[in-house]
């Protein structure tokens, strides 16, 4: 199977209070085209850093990240970021209407958006919202609009960073359905960081447990949740289930 993303011994550290904190300690993994990989792990374990390295919003200190076989630093940066879209937890909106926000990726390329209604319909938003101020939309609507905005670039990879954690259960479920549809219909490869284990289990083809800067276990999702190989995975799942 063709691998769309490949991480090779990736290390990343940050400076915090004049001290170097190692966030990723040499992780390696492959993601097959068209699959959904759910990434779980404790807070601060390095999950979100993996995402931002894939579209060069951050740079690895060591190691390589290949997208379609080409190292991220060899890509034209704008082209890479259009190809590898990212959706953030709080779905940030710029000042202006939903249409202004939706058409942003096209405007950044000096073009106009051909059919905004098509995108609104695709993500389940009504046309009348196009003229509404984007910052006035509900959390769920904002997240859908953010997806629509990302889709304008026709990405082949989508990086999702806790995209449902700020939503109520109904809105969260709707966004989940939307992501599954994007994956199904557009064969988009998805890397999905989530703290919700049941969500990770529902949507993932593969699941990774990231802990203390390392991938502890990467396995097919069903196997990950029913027969985890690593004792730390078992402990993590037990702890989360007990907490719930």
């Amino acid at each position: 199977m063709e691998s769309e993303i490949e991480l090779k011994n990736v290390c990343k550290a940050f400076m915090h209070d004049h001290e170097t904190v190692s966030v990723l300690k040499g992780i390696s993994a492959k993601v097959t085209k068209g699959t959904i990989v759910t990434i779980v792990g404790p807070s601060g374990s390095g999950k979100s850093t993996i995402l931002s390295l894939c579209n060069l919003l951050q740079t690895p200190d060591e190691g390589e990240i290949h997208i379609h076989g080409k190292e991220v630093r060899e890509w034209n940066i704008q082209e890479l970021r259009r190809l590898v879209g990212i959706a953030f937890q709080d779905a940030p909106m710029l000042k202006g209407t939903s249409l202004d926000n939706l058409s942003l990726p096209a405007r950044l390329q000096g073009k106009s958006l051909e059919n905004p209604k098509k995108y609104m319909k695709y993500v389940g938003l009504t046309e009348d919202l196009l003229s509404r101020q984007a910052k006035e939309l509900s959390g769920g609507q904002k997240q859908r609009l953010a997806f629509a905005r990302t889709l304008v670039n026709e990405p082949s990879v989508l990086l999702l960073d806790e995209v449902t954690s700020a939503l109520d259960s109904l809105a969260s479920h709707e966004v989940e359905e939307l992501v599954l549809r994007i994956n199904r219909e557009q064969h988009t490869t998805i890397l999905w960081v989530t703290h919700d284990l049941s969500q990770a289990e529902r949507v993932g083809d593969q699941t990774w447990l990231v802990m203390d800067g390392s991938i502890i276990e990467a396995a097919p999702t069903k196997q990950f949740f029913t027969e985890p190989k690593d004792v730390r995975t078992k402990q993590f799942l037990d702890m989360k289930r007990n907490y719930k």
Binding site: R81, P92, L108, R149
Partner: peptide, 15 residues
Amino acid sequence: EEVLLVLSLGGSIKQ
């Protein structure tokens, strides 16, 4: 956040 958003959508640093 706005800067990050525009960069993530393929915008240039100037944009």
